[in-house]
Simulated assay, not measured.
Amino acid sequence: MAVNLTNDDLEENLVNAENDIDIIFDGETYEYKEKRKKLEDLKIQKHSWSLSEIYQKIKADTVNLAPIYQREEVWSAQTQAQFIESLFIGIMIPPVYLAEIRPKNPLESIKYEVVDGKQRLISIFKFFKNELKLSNGLQYYGDIFLNSTYSDIEAKYPEEIERVLSSVIDLYVIAQNADPEIKYDVFARLNQGNIKLTQAELRKAIYASELTNIIYREVDKIDTNPEFEKAFTKTDRNRFRHLNRVYQSVAYVEQYRVAQEENKDSIMFADYNSRPRDMINLVLQKYQSSDTKKLINIDDISKITLITYQLKKELHENPVYREIESENELPRTTEFSIDCLIPFYSEISNPTCQKQILEKLYDNQDYLKTFERSPSTTSMVNKRLGIVYNEIFE
């Protein structure tokens, strides 16, 4: 049974450039049996490392505390001190989750990135590195540990330090060869705390590649340009929606070219199936592999990023397009419009050309009708693409 969505529902879901949660259109459902089969490849190994081992692994960069998708240090000095006190008390610490990163060179060592537990590991590392002085908030050791560093305590209470160094924490490692779709779900399920990772952060964790690194750098570079200050709101940037928007643009370019490679006269997106999330993940996964044929030149990422920002800026700032949405009670059209325009980024590289095309599209009733009902379905997405193609080439 199809899910009926109100305009408010669509507005909420489309702000993030795609649906935050899967919305099922046209009666399509997931094949649960197939997904359960993929679980067979999910391997989560349990390790028990002493605090001494954890410190040494972080120091040697075997454990990466700062993958791009992770949050910065957010615990206050007092919270960190209270956590360290918990180690001396002997309180059981919740397990830490790591993602396995296997090197291309089999002679090199396996490394790990923190998925859940970064603040705990930062506190441990800073304490043993003498970068954390135990401050206010200590409830059991305040009389002897207050304002003390690791070295201070080790000098006066070596037995306490030895006991803590030998204590262990359980760590669960998600194997790298797990199916990316299942791995994505594992990350999402772990990400149920007060500060949730965004889709962009999850993707950077799961689909890390040369492509995602370049996209991150290009977005970071163009985002400092005052010209595009209003292309994305502060909330968008805090939620990494600008990064996710470029992931999405790259995916739509790639899948348009895939369809054309199969049939040069094809005006459609390959493997869309009414699920933008799945298509984007498919493309990012594809660019992790060294064996898969890729249709986007890495050098073109800067162009795709720039034109995405240009389109976003024009659609976001131009009151004409906002008024059309309001008068016609249409769902937010910005992201859908970028999706069907970005495959032709070479043809619309000039901002004047972009404005002319947008004016034609938003004056085209057939184009506007594609937003009125189930705008994310395969048929509507490809219909918009065809209209854009005709406006550009005919």
Rank of each mutant, 00 (worst) to 15 (best):
L5T: 04
T6V: 04
D8L: 10
D9F: 06
D9M: 05
N13S: 14
L14P: 00
N16R: 09
E18A: 14
E18W: 14
N19I: 09
I21L: 12
F25S: 13
E34Q: 11
H47A: 10
I68A: 15
I68S: 15
I93G: 08
V96N: 04
I101W: 06
K104L: 12
K104W: 11
I110W: 02
K118L: 07
L121V: 00
L121Q: 02
E131L: 03
L132D: 04
L134M: 01
L134N: 03
G137F: 00
L138D: 03
Q139V: 11
D152T: 01
P158I: 00
D179P: 11
D179K: 03
I182P: 03
K183G: 00
A188H: 12
K196Y: 07
A200N: 04
S209R: 09
L211F: 01
T212P: 01
N213E: 12
I215D: 01
D223F: 11
E229Q: 11
E229L: 13
K230V: 02
R239I: 08
Y247H: 05
Q248K: 15
V253R: 11
E261C: 11
I267H: 02
F269R: 14
F269H: 11
A270N: 08
D271F: 10
N273Y: 14
R277C: 07
I280R: 08
L284S: 05
Q285A: 10
Y287R: 10
D291K: 09
N297H: 11
I301P: 14
I307Y: 13
L315Q: 09
E317T: 09
P319T: 01
Y321P: 15
E323Q: 15
I324Q: 02
P331F: 03
R332T: 09
E335I: 11
C340S: 15
I342H: 06
P351H: 00
L361I: 02
L368Y: 08
L368C: 12
T370N: 07
E372T: 08
P375G: 11
E391V: 02
F393R: 12
